[in-house]
Simulated scan of single mutants.
Amino acid sequence: MTQRNGFVREIQLPQIHDPRGDLTFVEGGNHIPFQIARVYYLYNVPVDSERGGHAHRELEQVVFALSGSFRMKIDDGTTKSEYWLRDPRKGLCISKMVWREMDAFSQGAVCMVLASHRYDEADYFRNYDDFLKALESETK
């Protein structure tokens, strides 16, 4: 299932509660709107650091805070919004052509990302003006 450009939504994964602790699972193509091609995570991020600062031409992602919290700043070229991730069951699904920045990491935060494609540097917009120009050319 491919989403339109600029699509962002929150998702919630299932939780199985047990006196011994909670369990959450994720299935690509079921809980996540794509088959998972890559998983990566960020940790030991200094609290004053910023991550992200890019958009993707084709890649879609779902971002989770497995531990701690951080802020996602989202920009689809028209609307800017912010999301605080702090619940490991709740993720932010980000389609292609969405600029994202991350900051305000809490001490010990762990960010996990599920991605629709393997790493490809050619898929990135790392310059915001180039991103905006690409959006503009798509609407013509």
Results as ranks from 00 to 15, higher is better:
Phe25Arg: 08
Tyr83Glu: 13
Phe64Ile: 03
Asn30Asp: 06
Asp120Asn: 15
Gly29Leu: 09
Asp18Lys: 02
Glu10Leu: 11
Lys96Ala: 14
Thr2Glu: 12
Gly53Met: 02
Ala37Cys: 09
Glu27Gly: 00
Glu50Trp: 07
Lys73Cys: 02
Asp48Tyr: 08
Leu85Cys: 08
Tyr128Arg: 14
Pro46His: 08
Lys133Ile: 07
Phe131Met: 07
Asn44Lys: 14
Asp76Gln: 08
Glu27Thr: 13
Gln15Leu: 15
Tyr41Ser: 11
Pro33Asp: 01
Lys80Gly: 10
His17Ser: 15
Tyr40Leu: 00
Ala65His: 01
Val26Gly: 05
Gly91Cys: 10
Asp129His: 11
Met97Gln: 10
Ser49Arg: 10
Leu59Ser: 12
Leu85Ile: 07
Ile74Asn: 05
Val98Lys: 05
Trp84Lys: 13
Arg71Gln: 13
His31Val: 02
Tyr43Phe: 14
Gly29Ala: 14
Lys140Gly: 11
Gly6Ala: 06
Leu42Asn: 12
Ser106Thr: 14
Trp84Gln: 14
Val8Arg: 04
Leu66Gln: 11
Gln61Glu: 15
Ser116Phe: 08
Glu136Asp: 12
Arg118Gln: 13
Asp22Gln: 12
Arg57Asp: 02
Val8His: 06
Asp87Leu: 08
Tyr41Val: 06
Arg51Asp: 03
Arg51Thr: 00
Val8Tyr: 03
Asp120Leu: 11
Pro19Met: 02
Leu13His: 03
Asp76Trp: 04
Met1Pro: 09
Ser106Phe: 01
Gly53Asn: 02
Arg100Met: 08
Ser81Met: 10
Leu66Thr: 10
Gly21Arg: 01
Tyr43Arg: 10
